[in-house]
Design a binder for these strands. Structure first.
Lengths: 152, 152
DNA sequence: TATATTTAGTTAGCCTAGCTAACTAATAAT
DNA sequence: ATTATTAGTTAGCTAGGCTAACTAAATATA
């Protein structure tokens, strides 16, 4: 008996099952590592913004909003509070006086890197349960994911 | 010249570099897929809680709080609002009348699964840029990550 | 059995972080 | 010169985080 629906049967993409498993694994991985974030004393939005600035470099308010997938007013306030706490600095652009460039302060960078070290250390400890070959496979997988997960 | 620090030189763990790369890759991956979440009309905390209930099954308020790594009052309110919106239900336990079990409603499940489908579809599309062998490698990597990222 | 302790969850009240709408100031286009 | 566009802010609302203090049920203890 044919399917009664009006739409054609969904053609299964080759990588759908893999995508599903990879998606779940990534969620579970980050959920597990997130427990280390409490120790930093920074909220999730602050850690996330700081990570963009530290690992991706300084950028304008708008660019930061886009990276964080939030609206501009959210960034205005977040950055204002973070600046008050000495985590970031805003610099007015000479070329275009409307534009503000935000960058992490040394203190902000230090805090973020410390937190990241804790997360990565926990993951590294967990990876020791694997064989060297499996770790190698994961390293390669990380490369592939970076390749594929380019923000469009 | 020996290092002047008081602590012994940090012995590099075998998997530290791999852990670092994997961590970055996972962050970038989920950041990329997150753009699909707007379409669900649900906030990040709601999607996250719903995902625990749908994929991990019903659980008590406390267990949900622990899974979400938030304090009990946060869950009380989140669940109350989600119940009002028909996403979850609370059921008083017969055995212990203090305990409430939370579960997703069919509507909650439907919304979550739709959203997940969108995220996974986007990832699957991206994976088509890879060779079948590379996709196979990622499937294996997902298994390894699941193995390693057990919430302790 | 009566009381005390522990446990599950809620309420109150505060702060941060999300949003839209409406604004200012600077630049670019007409 | 004027108009339109762009970058960011302000105002004001809602959702979601916290701690402290509470209620009610279950468990332990005197």
């Amino acid at each position: 008996m044919p399917r009664p629906s009006r739409q054609p049967a969904p053609r299964p993409r080759p990588g759908f099952a893999t995508a599903d498993r990879l998606h779940s694994a990534a969620i579970r991985l980050l959920r597990t590592l997130r427990v280390e974030d409490r120790a930093s004393g920074l909220s999730a939005p602050r850690l996330s913004a700081l990570s963009v600035l530290v690992f991706g470099g300084p950028r304008t308010m708008s660019a930061l909003a886009q990276a964080e997938q939030v609206q501009p007013p959210t960034i205005t306030r977040l950055v204002a509070e973070m600046e008050k706490d000495g985590l970031v600095e805003r610099v007015r652009s000479e070329a275009d006086r409307r534009v503000l460039t935000v960058r992490a302060t040394p203190e902000g960078r230090r805090l973020l890197e410390e937190g990241r070290r804790r997360r990565v250390a926990r993951l590294a400890a967990a990876l020791e349960a694997l064989s060297a070959a499996d770790r190698k496979l994961l390293a390669r997988a990380a490369e592939l994911i970076e390749q594929v997960a380019r923000p469009e």
